[in-house]
Design a protein around this nucleic acid. Structure first.
Length: 547
RNA sequence: GUCCCCAUCGUCUAGCCUGGCCUAGGACAUCACCCUUUCACGGUGAAGACACGGGUUCAAAUCCCGUUGGGGAUACCA
């Protein structure tokens, strides 16, 4: 490899599931490295596992990469949904699905057979008879590792079904596609001697390797999509202990299947039965199917209202993370620009990224820090952009848009977005926090402690304030109600020589059910006059109940 | 078991290659205070780390060896 050879990197996911954050980071680094050096970035699908590979997974992966802002120079067209026989693929080194490159592999199998370096197994599989020479693995991140002959082994390179194994396909493809730099997870570091042995036997060039650190869970376990299934099981068990029934859950999941399908494009089974749920709850985690791991937990979380740990890019997307926050956070997980700069854009990354600043040790995925990055980004969004994103992510499919007259540009939704922009860690967090806005007046759940402290205490002083204010509010105009009400509250507090807290809090509790809401003028603007009065009336009824 | 890799605040990390400028810097989280009609936002500040043991050196977070701990690989998965 000469100094002026153009850089070619690749991301080579296997389409056996959704795009994982670890994969996303690998893609990001490969992409950034190619961009930084004016080279090419290839996307290749490693679908040599015929049983587990699906076109749905491929679609999901392409969509998630595109969402992150990662584009590729060669590979399948992201907007197509069928890539059979080389269709809808771009680039001179295709096809970009390994299942479509069988003829190429056969050529290389023949070379090895001719060289006497293979052994045929009974069922037709082919084993590479490793010459077992001492091999030095050079790496841009890790120190050179030398593997002696004793540590090397023969391994299968062609499966009984005629497909190549990963080790063989990766070597042939990287070479035939002209890949110069292989940036991949450290789980592949120990595989590299196998790849080098194959390159040597085949007379192929060695790419430059860079093995990047693993991403771990808080408890040091490898971050796994099974974590979602485990959480779902625990939550469902809890729900059943509290009197929930499996039949009911199944019924609800089936009823909302269409919505789930939008969220989980890899979803396979058409509907969920009670017995499938029982099966899911009791089977060994090693037996989880793709559906168990990616779809069922999501549907359960939706129905029962619990929170799942985000593992896949798709999860972050639907839970209201911005792609730029995820990229920013992921970029920093294992790499840093060398100064104290932490918040930067993907554009900066492609100017700055370098392998010599990639760390060696595994990193734990810190959701809190990601959330802080996301909150920062959300706060920095132009208000109209935030409003539009909020509407898309949270309201579509959640059935609450009608609370805002289905109008993303109406004054009440504008007020809602404004109130929550600096209060939201994620877009969906906004909906959680602002849930009370979407309820009917008689569905508000009043927090006992709040009612007691703010309204009932001191012989119902708060109720008295509320009653007085109710009369004043009734005279105010619909237009600019929140502002006018706020002025009225101030006037009332001066007139009765009460602190603002003594006056505003009763209103807050009356309309929200708790002591927490955005500033009172904004809160009332979002609600509007009629709804505010309705809620105050409803709240006033509590007076007799508590006295 | 065997082979390979890793080791700085709770977490992500800067510093290590080219020993002294390190009384170890930043970010997230935590705590306190300020702002304030609640919750946030914002501001100020505090607490918090060189895994351990040996070397080498005038001097070690930085170099060497060992111990311990962690991770990965050891599939007709990738």
């Amino acid at each position: 490899m000469t100094a002026n050879t153009p850089v070619v990197t690749r991301f080579a996911p296997s389409p056996t599931g959704a795009l994982h954050v670890g994969g996303a980071r690998t893609a990001l680094y490969n992409w950034a490295y190619a961009r930084r050096h004016g080279g090419r970035f290839i996307l290749r699908l490693e679908d040599t596992d015929q049983k587990r590979s699906t076109a749905e997974s491929t679609r999901g992966i392409l969509r998630d990469l595109a969402w992150l802002g990662i584009d590729w120079d060669e590979g399948p067209d992201a907007n197509a949904d069928n890539w059979d026989d080389g269709a809808n693929q771009r680039g001179a080194n295709g096809p970009y699905f390994q299942s479509q490159r069988l003829k190429i592999y056969d050529e290389y199998f023949d070379k090895l057979i001719a060289a006497g370096l293979t052994k045929k197994e009974d069922n037709g599989a082919l084993r590479f008879m490793n010459p077992k020479r001492s091999i030095a693995v050079r790496d841009e991140v890790l120190p050179t590792a030398t593997i002696g002959p004793l540590a090397q082994e023969d391994f299968i390179i062609r499966k009984a079904d005629g497909f190549p194994t990963y080790h063989f396909a990766v070597v042939v493809d990287d070479a035939t596609m002209g890949v110069t730099h292989v940036i991949r997870g450290q789980e592949h570091h120990s595989n590299t001697p196998k790849h080098i042995a194959l390159q040597d036997a085949l007379g192929l060039p060695r790419p430059i390797y860079a093995h990047i650190p693993l991403i771990l869970n808080q408890d040091n376990s490898k971050m796994s999509k099974r974590d979602k299934a485990k959480t779902a099981r625990d939550e469902v068990q809890k729900w059943i202990c509290n009197g929930g029934s499996i039949d009911e859950l199944a019924e609800r999941m089936v009823a909302n299947e269409e919505k789930a399908r939008q969220l989980y494009p890899t979803m396979q089974s058409p509907s969920v039965t009670a017995s499938e749920i029982v099966d899911f709850l009791t089977k060994k985690s090693a037996d989880f199917t793709q559906n168990d791991v990616e779809v069922i937990p999501g549907m359960m979380a939706r129905e029962l209202g619990f929170h799942l740990p985000e593992i896949e890019v798709n999860d972050f997307r639907w839970n209201g993370y911005l792609p730029e926050s995820l990229c920013n956070y992921l970029a920093l997980l294992g790499w840093n620009p060398g100064n104290n700069l932490e918040r930067f854009d993907t554009d900066d990354l492609k100017e700055e990224f370098s392998l010599d600043r990639v760390g060696k040790s595994a990193a734990k995925f810190d959701r809190e820090k990601l959330a802080a990055f996301n909150a920062d980004r959300i706060a920095g969004l132009r208000p109209e952009v935030f409003r539009q994103k909020l509407w898309e992510v949270c309201f579509r499919g959640r059935g609450i848009a009608n609370q805002f007259q289905n109008d993303p540009n109406g004054p009440r939704f504008v007020a809602f977005a404004e109130a929550y922009q600096s209060r939201s860690k994620t877009l969906s967090d906004t909906v959680e926090q602002g849930r009370f806005f979407f309820l009917d007046a008689d569905a508000i759940a009043y927090d006992d402690k709040a009612v007691d402290k703010v309204l009932a205490k001191n012989d119902g002083q708060g109720f008295g304030v509320l009653e007085g204010l109710r009369a004043v509010f009734a005279e105010l105009p619909d237009d600019g109600f929140g502002h006018a009400a706020h002025e009225a509250i101030k006037a009332y507090s001066e007139q009765h020589e009460l602190g603002m807290g003594k006056v505003a809090q009763p209103v807050r509790v009356a309309v929200s059910g708790s002591t927490v809401s955005p500033p009172i003028d904004q809160t009332l603007d979002i609600l509007g006059k009629a709804e505010t009065l309705a809620r105050i009336d409803r709240c006033l009824q509590l007076r007799t109940a508590t006295s």
